[in-house]
């Protein structure tokens, strides 16, 4: 642990522009990313791609999705006052037109200031289920083809969509990763959850039922894996918290293995706390079901309660190669 010098005047915050969804209640998108980043000394400029009462998993929600034009206007306002950022975080954007606007504005920013670190989370779906319109897939490819995104955090399904490759085993995963670096010049790829089973990865039966993350960087041939804790409850916003924390760690250290390990460790603690508070409040184990607002409400990430966890640096996992 480094001891800070007597901080009469605190260190200036780094500036990040975060473009994701807003919900009045709950923790997904910008609501999941903002407070954790703020506790880590990031000044977060929050640009909301949608403005909803709650996330759609509740089964009922109200609100407004921003049009591409509305999003462009907000960017123009920021350009007008000469905003400069250290990082950009782009997450859930609901439709092709809005995503095109986000893409073209971020590309222009990154061209003007190549030092910006851009993390793109191509939120499209999970486990074979697409939850945005399929027109966004080519838009993500187009954005990536400018070779300006530094960090990308797709899940396995999203990686398949971006590359139009089906990942069924270790070999097809390796080809997909290689292709991603080659085509899009992305420096770091972090897949926080693979749907590939231990068996598909060629691991023995002692690993049955485990979950895996994998990471890769452009300047290394190694594909590294982590065997991570599994929580069976349905949580939303997990990927959004993950990408926010990963941006912080990678921005500050540039060490993708250690950064990912720290962030996976924090995620596991946050999910543990969320589940335990949930069990305590309800007096029983709860598995949230899509469309059931009573359990959805209890399964919101405990972003505020976990305030002290985001700065933790210890690593709970051992990375391995296959």
């Amino acid at each position: 642990m480094t001891r800070s010098r007597n901080p009469v005047i605190p260190k200036r915050a780094k500036k990040v522009l975060s473009i994701q969804s807003h919900v009045v209640h709950g923790y997904v998108g910008n609501k999941a990313a903002t407070f954790p980043l703020q506790t880590l000394n990031w000044d977060v400029d929050v640009l909301n791609s949608v403005n909803f009462s709650n996330h759609t998993g509740y089964g009922s929600w109200k609100g407004h999705s921003c049009t591409g034009i509305e999003i462009e206007q907000l960017f123009e306002g920021l350009e007008g006052i000469n905003m400069h950022y250290d990082a950009i975080l782009t997450g859930y954007t609901h439709g092709a037109s809005a995503l095109k606007s986000v893409g073209s504005k971020c590309i222009a920013m990154k061209k003007n200031q190549p030092n910006i670190v851009w993390l793109l989370d191509p939120v499209m779906g999970d486990e074979g289920q697409l939850y945005v319109s399929k027109e966004v897939i080519p838009v993500y490819r187009e954005i990536l083809s400018h070779r300006l995104v530094d960090i990308i955090t797709p899940n396995q399904f999203e990686l398949e969509l971006l590359l139009n490759i089906k990942i069924t085993d270790l070999n097809s995963l390796r080809s997909a990763v290689k292709l991603l670096h080659l085509e899009f010049a992305v420096k770091y790829l972090v897949v926080s959850s693979l749907t590939l089973t231990a068996e598909a990865l060629g691991l023995d039966s002692s690993h049955n039922g485990k979950m895996y993350s994998c990471i890769s960087s452009m300047d290394s041939d190694k594909l590294l894996f982590f065997e991570i804790d599994r929580y069976d409850s349905y949580f939303t916003g997990v990927g959004d918290l993950f990408s926010a924390l990963l941006l912080d760690r990678l921005y500050k250290s540039g060490d993708v293995v250690d950064s990912t390990n720290q962030v996976l460790s924090i995620m596991s603690r946050v999910l543990y706390v969320t589940r335990e508070i949930c069990v305590k409040d309800l007096g029983k184990e709860v598995n949230a079901k899509i469309g059931d607002f009573k359990t959805m409400k209890e399964c919101e990430l405990r972003i505020v309660e976990c305030a002290d966890l985001y700065a933790q640096q210890d690593c709970d996992y051992a990375p391995f190669e296959l």
């Binding site: 009045v24 209640h25 403005n51 909803f52 009462s53 709650n54 509740y58 009922s60 929600w61 109200k62 609100g63 407004h64 509305e70 206007q73 907000l74 960017f75 123009e76 306002g77 920021l78 007008g80 006052i81 607002f293 959805m296 409400k297």
Partner: peptide
């Protein structure tokens, strides 16, 4: 995009209908 103290800004006010519906959304849950 920013507050008017910067002398220029872009963006919009929320309509009363949007504000009402956002609250309805949270009341429904």
């Amino acid at each position: 995009s920013n507050h008017p103290g910067y002398k220029q800004f872009k963006g919009s006010k929320s309509s009363p209908a949007l504000i009402e519906s956002l609250f309805e959304g949270v009341r429904d849950i």
